[in-house]
Amino acid sequence: MMWKRIGILLAVVLLAACSDASEKPEPTLGADVKMAEAYLEEQGYEVVSYKGNRTSSFEKSDLLELPTRSTWEVQTTPPDEYIGRNIRQEHFIVRNHPLGQANVFVMMVDGEIIGGTSFPDSAEPLVGSSYSLDGKTSEELHPDYWTWREQWETKYSE
């Protein structure tokens, strides 16, 4: 009789555990992720997958060094307002991008999209600088690149 009660009690506990697990909501994506994803879709990109996020910051002197310089060279927003602030980068794989299937990092501060970077989605190791969020090089964004670069170096080395 005691074994029967233990068996029934065990069955009830297992059923309760199973039903409780099925009622838990699936993990949801945060507001920043949803905003970044919607932004990418508005640009005509098909989001294949979400790869996570990271947060970084930089100081003025970092703007003269890689990788910070190469990231900010391909932004249309100047970096000055973001020096010393946390920048969240939401990472996605997208299709229909000028680079083909691509990794994109949407840069956000306080829930606002401030820019981003991209690079081809490749199984092979890649070498070189980032592209802008829409696949442009720093030379495409700054047609007189060397003059622009001199001004950049003068401004951020002060």
Results as ranks from 00 to 15, higher is better:
60 K>L: 09
25 P>M: 09
50 Y>K: 04
104 V>A: 01
63 L>S: 06
106 V>C: 01
138 S>T: 07
131 Y>V: 11
78 P>I: 02
74 V>E: 01
48 V>G: 08
140 E>A: 05
119 F>P: 00
33 V>F: 11
24 K>I: 13
90 E>T: 06
123 A>D: 15
28 T>M: 12
71 T>M: 13
114 I>H: 02
144 D>G: 07
88 R>C: 08
30 G>V: 12
36 A>G: 14
83 I>F: 02
81 E>K: 08
133 L>V: 00
76 T>S: 08
49 S>F: 07
126 L>F: 12
84 G>V: 04
27 P>Q: 11
58 F>W: 09
30 G>C: 11
110 D>L: 02
92 F>H: 09
32 D>R: 13
39 Y>Q: 03
78 P>Y: 01
145 Y>Q: 09
85 R>F: 00
116 G>N: 05
140 E>C: 03
59 E>P: 03
33 V>H: 11
85 R>T: 07
103 N>D: 10
94 V>G: 00
21 A>M: 14
68 T>Q: 10
22 S>L: 15
81 E>W: 00
123 A>L: 10
142 H>F: 10
27 P>M: 07
130 S>F: 15
102 A>W: 00
116 G>T: 02
57 S>N: 11
136 K>N: 01
55 T>H: 06
118 S>E: 02
129 S>P: 08
40 L>G: 10
142 H>Y: 08
134 D>N: 03
77 T>D: 05
83 I>S: 03
27 P>L: 08
74 V>A: 01
69 R>V: 10
61 S>V: 11
129 S>H: 13
79 P>Q: 06
79 P>D: 06
82 Y>F: 14
143 P>N: 07
95 R>S: 13
138 S>Q: 11
73 E>N: 10
25 P>K: 13
113 I>V: 11
61 S>Q: 12
66 L>R: 13
69 R>F: 06
139 E>N: 08
144 D>F: 06
47 V>C: 03
129 S>D: 15
90 E>W: 06
